[in-house]
Design a protein around this nucleic acid. Sequence first.
DNA 1: TACTCATATATACAAGTGTATAATAAATGC
DNA 2: GCATTTATTATACACTTGTATATATGAGTA
Lengths: 221, 221
Amino acid sequence: MTYKMDAVTAVSESTPITRGPGRRPEIDRERIVQAALKLLGPDRSVATLSLREIAREAGIAPNSFYRHFHNVDELAVALIERAGRSLRVIIGAARQRVGQQGSVIQSSVEVFLEQLDAQDKFLHILLREGCVGSREFRHAVERQLCFFEEELKTDLIRLSAAAGGRVHRPEATARAMTRLVFAMGTRALDMGPEHRRELAEETVCMLRMIMVGALATASAN
Amino acid sequence: MTYKMDAVTAVSESTPITRGPGRRPEIDRERIVQAALKLLGPDRSVATLSLREIAREAGIAPNSFYRHFHNVDELAVALIERAGRSLRVIIGAARQRVGQQGSVIQSSVEVFLEQLDAQDKFLHILLREGCVGSREFRHAVERQLCFFEEELKTDLIRLSAAAGGRVHRPEATARAMTRLVFAMGTRALDMGPEHRRELAEETVCMLRMIMVGALATASAN
DNA sequence: TACTCATATATACAAGTGTATAATAAATGC
DNA sequence: GCATTTATTATACACTTGTATATATGAGTA
């Protein structure tokens, strides 16, 4: 297939406020994003969505899609970024409010896994789109995970310092924890509630071992 | 699309040796598997392969595919299983021969990452197909990873016992290590050699922390 | 009113897809 | 030879896809 597109006016994230002449836009990116989210499911990754399918779901003509995104990949990146932003807020908040019962680790893992059932499919997106699609695509997910790691890193330093200890290679520790949680989350996608509980318990155990190892290694040096 | 297939004679992994009447088969699963492997690449996951595309690459008529696999997903599962089997052999061997220089962990990680550049795309398959495609699909990958974990678990017990220690929750420890290595391997896919070296070093550090944590936790109980 | 824009839709096309159906090809046993 | 059985291919169909082109719609401005 060797098609070429008509030149499309550049689409920026922020819509300009100044309105000149011309018909008012009645479609916005949000509408398209919502349609795409509705189509995503346990067996549908963003990479499997077609432009026409999304347009159909959004109730717009296929070509109208182009006025808001250059292609489906660009929409996918937008979805990934939104998903990352939303999740960081949720998880960050969970880490801030000290677990009234149980450890920070435990409550964080629980909040994380709860997001699997959220009606927005944000976690699903981050869990599954990291290893498929175009390079640009995977980089978008990688970027989001790095944000997670960065925030976790500062938290690790803060918490361990408050406890009078310190962690070995905080960035590596944070990365190990983050990647592990996401890997376990991916497994959880295909599980029922009872198995998920086991999985949550196991994940907490893993994270504790990493924490113990990071503290012990730091002390040893 | 509401198509139905003609009844297809059951396809088993082992070809029967007894030859009755009828034309001799000139196409075998291997030919199709090889064609599929040739098509896979950094930006092509099994899920994106079409039946016709594979048939074209294999030099057979589209319908001939059906005589050997019921559908592309079945081929995918075959690929996943073959990939898992091959990799377990490679990694297992790497763990057996005690690293003449450096730790078991280090040499294992190195062997693992070397497989990213192997001409067969086995590691790619396990890294990327775990989170996409049909449920059956993902389960096939999960099954292979569990085999890895099982073998690592017995090794962990063996090695730590030999060193006079013991690990906490060996199955969880093995799983944490396995999943972490695969997660880091996924990142490595998009990296050049120099970044991969850093990543290998970081991964070794992570695994050591888990090991330290597992040993320390076991001692504490 | 008519002109000029930005926006959205309609229509059309070439290409690709999975697969049903029918025909062909090669091997066996009579 | 012929019938039978299996393997492979040829052809055809209905359908989806991305997108080029043209047209319609609504707003501001002259």
